[in-house]
Structures are given as C-alpha cells and as structure tokens.
C-alpha cells in the first residue's frame, strides 16, 4: 500500500482532524501517515514486540478516530493525547504480562547475565531494545519519549501524568541504567574506547 508522504506539513494535526470529521478522506490518509509511525515506534520500544506494538498502535489510532467528533481544538495537542493513550495501553499490556504492579519492580542495578549474553549476539538496536527492557516501565516510557522520540519534558509530564521534575528524574536514572546495561557489551557493539 502506498502511503503518501506528509503533503501538508504546515497543517496542524487538529485542523486535519477537523477536516476528517467533515468527511475529508485525504485528512484521514495524512493523519494515518503522520501519526501511526510515531505511535508504533513508541509502542515497539516500550513493549519490545512488533506484533503487540501493532495491536496497540491500531487500538490507539482507533480511539483517535472515535473521539474525533468531540475533539476540542486548542485544549491539547493531538500527538500528546495519542502518546498518552499509547503509553497507557502499553502499561496495561505490560501489567497483564507480568501480573504484578510495575511500580513495585526494583530498578536493576546491573544487566542480568542473560541480558549480557544476548547482547553479544545482537546488533546495536537489539542491544538497545534489550537494555530498554531492563528498565522499569515508567522509566522506559520516559526514556523513549525523551531520548528517542525527542519530546520536551513538559510534554512528557502531560503524557505520563506526572510532574516535570519527576520526568527529569526518570529520564536521568533511565539513561544511567541504559548506559550501565550497554557497558558490558561495548566491544561487541563496536565501541572501542571507555568513554560514554
């Protein structure tokens, strides 16, 4: 399926959503092309499973289409709302999978021997994904939003429904933990010196 590139980059998501509600099919295509990759990328990095990330992405986008007629322009950014829905859907999936409250899971101090062994055979992206998987869920969400998606801390605070200070704390601790998790596989990943 050929999905067009963003033909109207200057057009706000909310304006496109309004056009979608009025029956404009091209607005549906543009929003799909613009937002689905961001939702999928976030879900994939948090869940670490492409099939599950696809399910979450389709579910999040479906919720957007359904809420579109009631969308009030100016109250929130569409992408922020969508990230929040995606983050919550990911949290639900991870909780169901683990069967315990994620907030109770302690932050790992060191990568597990199993994780280190896997890092030896994986490329850098897989190593990063494995390292992300070692982070507590909230920390992982914050690191992905801040350092991979490139969002600002205040927007992440809205998405995760926490304070900006909490975001700063989560991302700082998350990044340290990532560096630590990846440090054991530096040689296999092609990093030669010891500096980070």
């Amino acid at each position: 399926m050929n999905m067009p590139l963003d033909a109207e980059p200057e057009c706000e998501d909310a304006a496109l959503l309004a056009r979608y509600v009025q029956g404009d099919a091209s607005a549906a295509r543009l929003l799909t092309a613009r937002l689905t990759p961001r939702v999928f990328a976030h879900a994939f990095r948090v869940l670490g499973d492409a099939a599950e990330a696809e399910d979450v992405s389709q579910d999040a986008m479906l919720r957007l289409w359904r809420i579109a007629p009631e969308w009030r322009t100016g109250e929130a950014k569409v992408s922020t709302w969508l990230y929040r829905v995606t983050a919550n859907l990911c949290t639900d999936r991870l909780r169901r999978k683990r069967g315990s409250a994620l907030d109770d899971i302690a932050e790992p101090a060191d990568p597990t021997p199993g994780a280190e062994a896997r890092l030896q055979d994986r490329a850098r992206y897989d190593a990063l994904q494995a390292a992300l998987a070692t982070l507590p869920e909230r920390q992982r969400q914050a690191v992905v939003l801040r350092h991979i998606e490139g969002l600002a801390n205040p927007e992440i605070a809205v998405i995760l429904e926490i304070t900006t200070e909490a975001v700063e704390s989560l991302t700082a601790r998350g990044k340290r933990a990532l560096a630590q998790a990846l440090s054991g596989a530096r040689a296999q990943l092609g990093y030669e010196d010891e500096s980070h």
Partner: peptide
Amino acid sequence: MGRVLEDA
C-alpha cells in the same frame, strides 16, 4: 498502515 486507514 493499511489497517489504521481502513479503521479511519
């Protein structure tokens, strides 16, 4: 992408 557009 196709499924999302179909839903839309």
